Simulated assay, not measured.
Amino acid sequence: MVGDQDSVGALDPLVGYHLRRAFGAFSGDFTAAMEGTGMRQVLVGVLAVVARSPGINQGAVGRVLDIKRANMVSLINELVEAKLLTRETDPQDRRAFALAVTDRGREVLADSLARIEAHEARMLAGFTETERAALLELLRRIERRAGDSA
Rank of each mutant, 00 (worst) to 15 (best):
M1L: 14
G3H: 12
D4K: 14
D4Q: 12
D6P: 01
D6Q: 14
S7A: 11
V8A: 08
L11G: 00
D12I: 11
D12G: 01
D12H: 12
V15Q: 06
G16M: 03
R20C: 02
R20H: 08
R21I: 03
R21K: 12
R21D: 06
R21Q: 12
F23P: 00
G24M: 04
A25E: 11
A25L: 14
F26A: 13
G28P: 07
G28M: 08
T31G: 04
T31Q: 14
A32L: 13
A32C: 03
A33F: 01
A33M: 01
M34V: 00
E35S: 15
E35G: 14
G36H: 08
G38T: 01
G38I: 03
G45E: 01
A48E: 07
A48R: 06
V50R: 03
A51R: 13
A51S: 14
R52M: 13
S53A: 14
S53V: 11
P54N: 11
P54H: 12
I56N: 03
G59H: 07
V61I: 04
R63T: 11
V64K: 08
L65P: 01
I67G: 03
I67V: 09
I67T: 02
K68E: 07
A70W: 08
N71C: 00
M72D: 06
M72C: 09
S74W: 06
S74E: 09
I76W: 02
L79R: 06
L79M: 05
V80E: 05
E81I: 13
A82D: 08
L84N: 02
L85H: 02
T86W: 03
T86F: 06
T86E: 12
E88S: 15
T89N: 11
D90W: 05
D93C: 06
R94Q: 15
A96Y: 07
A96R: 15
F97R: 13
A100T: 14
V101R: 04
D103W: 03
R104I: 08
R104E: 15
G105Q: 07
G105N: 08
R106P: 05
E107F: 05
E107V: 10
E107Q: 15
E107D: 15
L109R: 02
S112G: 01
S112Y: 00
A114W: 02
E117R: 09
H119V: 02
E120P: 00
R122N: 12
M123T: 02
G126Y: 06
T128K: 09
T128A: 09
E129R: 11
E137H: 10
E137R: 15
L139T: 08
R141Q: 09
I142H: 04
E143R: 10
R145L: 10
D148C: 01
D148H: 05
S149A: 07
A150H: 04
A150M: 10
